Computed example of a mutant assay.
Amino acid sequence: MSQRAEFSVDKAVFTFPDTEEGPVISHEFVITNTGDAPLVISDYKVSCPCTKAFFSKEPIQPGQTAVIEVTFETKGKYYEQDRTVLLFTNTKKGTDKLRFKVYVIPEGEE
């Protein structure tokens, strides 16, 4: 039986409270390696430069946790936003996802 890293996240989809347009908002996803080999997150991909992910390139050892901070620039974004961060990992699938949602209230609207 080969050893394999397994990706587990504390909350697959995070929903921010309604946010007025303008600020950069962020959330920290807690990742756990539930496999029996070190978990490596090598890169990430997003559909918009308004979303960024920050994480250590250090391997996450079996049973250990790490934090991935995801930021979202709300300026110029309106109403329902549903974003996915695609992480490139050394798991069996090769990719894992983080997802967040936020309702952005346009500037000047209440």
Rank of each mutant, 00 (worst) to 15 (best):
P17I: 08
F100T: 02
K97G: 08
A37L: 02
S42F: 09
V102G: 01
Y79T: 09
F54C: 00
D36A: 06
V46Q: 13
C48V: 15
E109P: 02
V70T: 00
D96N: 15
P17T: 14
D96A: 15
T65Y: 11
V40N: 07
T71E: 06
P23E: 01
A37W: 01
S8K: 15
I25N: 08
E69K: 08
G108Y: 01
T95C: 06
A12Y: 05
K97N: 15
D36S: 10
P62K: 06
I41H: 06
V30A: 14
F100I: 04
D82F: 07
Q81M: 14
T91A: 04
D43I: 03
E21T: 13
K93C: 03
K11L: 13
K11T: 08
V46I: 10
V13Q: 13
F88E: 15
F16I: 02
T74D: 12
E107F: 12
P38M: 08
S42L: 03
D18W: 10
I41P: 12
V30K: 12
T65E: 12
T34P: 14
T65K: 15
Y103W: 15
G35T: 11
F7T: 12
D82P: 11
L87M: 01
T51G: 00
K52Y: 00
E6F: 14
I60V: 12
D43A: 13
K75E: 12
D82W: 04
P49C: 02
D96L: 12
F72D: 13
Q64T: 13
F54Q: 09
C50A: 07
E6S: 11
S8C: 13
Q61T: 10
Y103D: 13
K101M: 10
T32L: 13
K101D: 10
K77V: 04
S56L: 06
S47A: 15
L87W: 07
T84H: 12
